[in-house]
């Protein structure tokens, strides 16, 4: 047996190590532009927002440090409390109605063969309509004079013409949520459908052989099978619900009388209309903390329960 001469074998290892370092360096170089952009447009402004939240910055003059004043003011601000409550209601709605509709729609679509593509298209189309367009359409539809209520009123349903969903403080937030849901649930349905298709069909066959019904199939096979998607969308729904802005701003701008005010519209008003950028930053920090709490909760679940995305 001939042993290799000393110093002859390590050469390829050194080449491998060099190649590995080169690959890592190349990877880092590729990441650098994105990292730079991230620092400039996300991390930088985020840090600045935290800083400004402790100041009385008006957007023009040099900011003055005010400590926790903005946060103390938030605690006693009726508009903030209303906005936070509305965001919570919004979150509950979007965690139940569109998620439920998306799950049900996707599950039912997995049961049909013919026409599935047509239904998928029909349910998804609202998602690609520009928000401002769908909001304008719905504003007309809900107009008590020329919308659905007005037409029903003409056809002998007089009470329908008295419903002014966007003008009534008790109904406005729900009306906006329903309009937003009209656009949103089809998107969720499509994601759930894709997840359901990846569930092993043999599980359903086995369940049927064991005499399981549709509900048991759904509960014991489908839901666990799509759990990563479900948990991810659950988490994102919480985050998105606290960032909602467009439909509220377009349809009511937080009215009537603050009935549909949410944190992002309040932030916008504080920072850009009332020139209280420091106070607006504090609202932004609270929004970020809420999102961070949701993400942390998810990470804890993932670690403790072994859930994965």
């Amino acid at each position: 047996m001939t042993l290799p001469a000393l110093g002859t074998r390590p050469a390829p290892r050194r080449r491998t190590a060099r190649a590995s370092r080169g690959r890592r360096l190349a990877g880092l170089l590729f990441l650098l532009p994105l990292f730079t952009v991230n620092i400039l447009v996300i991390a930088g402004p985020a840090v600045m927002s935290v800083f400004y939240s402790f100041t009385d910055w008006d957007g023009l003059n040099a900011p003055g440090f005010v400590g926790l004043d903005n946060y103390v003011r938030l605690a006693g601000d009726d508009s903030f409390r209303t906005a936070l409550r509305n965001n919570l209601l919004w979150t509950v709605f979007f965690l139940t109605v569109p998620m439920g509709m998306g799950l049900l729609g996707a599950y039912l679509l997995t049961r049909i063969r013919r026409g599935q593509l047509l239904f998928r298209l029909l349910f998804f189309v609202p998602y690609v309509v520009a928000t401002v367009v769908s909001a304008s359409i719905w504003r007309q539809l809900l107009n008590p004079s020329v919308g659905i209520g007005g037409v029903l009123g003409d056809f002998g349903v007089p009470w329908a013409a008295d419903i002014n969903a966007l003008g009534d403080g008790d109904l406005a937030l729900g009306a906006i949520a329903l309009i937003n849901n009209w656009q949103w649930w089809g998107f969720l349905m499509l994601l759930f459908l894709a997840a359901m298709r990846s569930v092993d069909p043999s599980l359903y066959e086995a369940a049927r052989l064991d005499g399981a019904g549709r509900w048991r199939e759904f509960w014991h096979i489908t839901l666990p099978g799509i759990r990563p998607t479900f948990v991810f969308l659950f988490l994102m729904t919480i985050i998105w619900s606290f960032l909602v802005f467009d439909y509220v701003y377009i349809l009511t701008q937080g009215g009537p009388g603050g009935a549909t005010e949410v944190l992002s519209t309040l932030l916008y008003r504080s920072a850009f209309t009332e020139q209280q950028a420091g106070y607006g930053s504090a609202i932004g920090v609270v929004l970020a903390l809420i999102s961070a709490t949701a993400v942390t909760g998810y990470l804890v679940l993932r670690r403790r329960a072994g859930w994965d995305v």
């Binding site: 504003r139 107009n143 008590p144 003008g167």
Partner: peptide
């Protein structure tokens, strides 16, 4: 406004 003189009433006012 409560009499409906401005904008036809409170609810219509906001739409």
């Amino acid at each position: 406004m409560d009499k409906g003189w401005w904008g036809g009433g409170t609810k219509d006012y906001f739409t």
